[in-house]
Design a protein around this nucleic acid. Sequence first.
DNA 1: TAGATTGTTAATCGATTAACAATC
DNA 2: TAGATTGTTAATCGATTAACAATC
Lengths: 208, 208
Amino acid sequence: MKEKFVPDIVVKRLPWYLQTLNQMAREGLHTVSSIALADRVGTSGAQIRKDLSYFGEFGKQGTGYSIYFLIEQLQKILKVDRIWRVSVVGAGNLGRALTRYQGFANRGIDICLLFDNDPGLVGIRVNSLIVRHVDSMADDIQDMKVKMAILTLPSEAAQATADVLVGAGIQAILNYTPAALMLPKHIQVEHIDPVLQLQRMMYYLGEE
Amino acid sequence: MKEKFVPDIVVKRLPWYLQTLNQMAREGLHTVSSIALADRVGTSGAQIRKDLSYFGEFGKQGTGYSIYFLIEQLQKILKVDRIWRVSVVGAGNLGRALTRYQGFANRGIDICLLFDNDPGLVGIRVNSLIVRHVDSMADDIQDMKVKMAILTLPSEAAQATADVLVGAGIQAILNYTPAALMLPKHIQVEHIDPVLQLQRMMYYLGEE
DNA sequence: TAGATTGTTAATCGATTAACAATC
DNA sequence: TAGATTGTTAATCGATTAACAATC
């Protein structure tokens, strides 16, 4: 796959395309044009064609794209064509809810480790996992070659824990705490904070 | 507050500024320059000055911004200077975890309603709330004049439920399901899907 | 063949950055 | 006063869109 530099804003859209294509496949469709796909995703045909052109030529003039083939290609590009082991750090309400979340299994994600520092939580079972103590976190992550982690712990502990994770070989962190993490820039970080998203929407709400 | 049209990308950054300023206030700081704030947020001084200029003049040449004053102004702009009642729809693991989340209380958000359609969940207590049946959802939301909702239910039910919410006067929806919602464009929607964020990061992960 | 749709180039649009006069 | 930093304008940069030759 010859890949020139791809803007991050393009990479961000690929999972959306993939998800929509999977949905279309489930509906029994076989072929889709850039415009039909764009309508479903909420973008333009030109943008989809441009985005895909960073990675190769996947369509046929006159007929569009084979859904099955395009799914396969996008999975390769995003490296979703394998199972990634992911560790959840923090076994509070949110950490346990995510560990139990059914939506990961079919989409390339295997939650395989769950940690907490609360002795009252260590040892309990969540789904098929047993909560482990953070003391063994670095070792466990190295042993299992885990590359991604989800942070669901109190924000006071977020930075220190993230540092340990990076030291243990974690390359991507999905941060559910309100803390802004300072990490080497080769580490991928995504931040989820429902408060920030709700506040953005408040701007657009009518008075009373 | 004279407000020309403000690009959404600017509005999206305001909650970040607000959060960082609050953090600085907690650290005992009183004044900040655009560059000092930018360093903490991870942007540039020019961008912060430009963004703020859409709403007015809040700084002083030579000294920068009063943190306290700027927090006050941003809260007004975002309408975070009041408490917004929010309904959680779906009392599964994630819905209960969000209802219990401590981070909402001090940041302008009051989770005041929690719904489910499972008779086994209706009536149980989560924090100080009792799970109500979705049958009364439209009425309850209208009675309490709730304008924002958080969707944490199976994706099959997401669209139909969102339609009911909009009918009941909901103006902003934070969607935790993988479903893409089709709603009138005056309705604000934010989508949180950890799978999409993890997949984006997979692109950047090294092979093995 | 005629119609449809791709991949790509050039044109447009919008966002970020640089620069600096104004001024605290 | 001298130094610092704002608010704003103009220049740059990057992303989106329009258009169309190529071709299935």
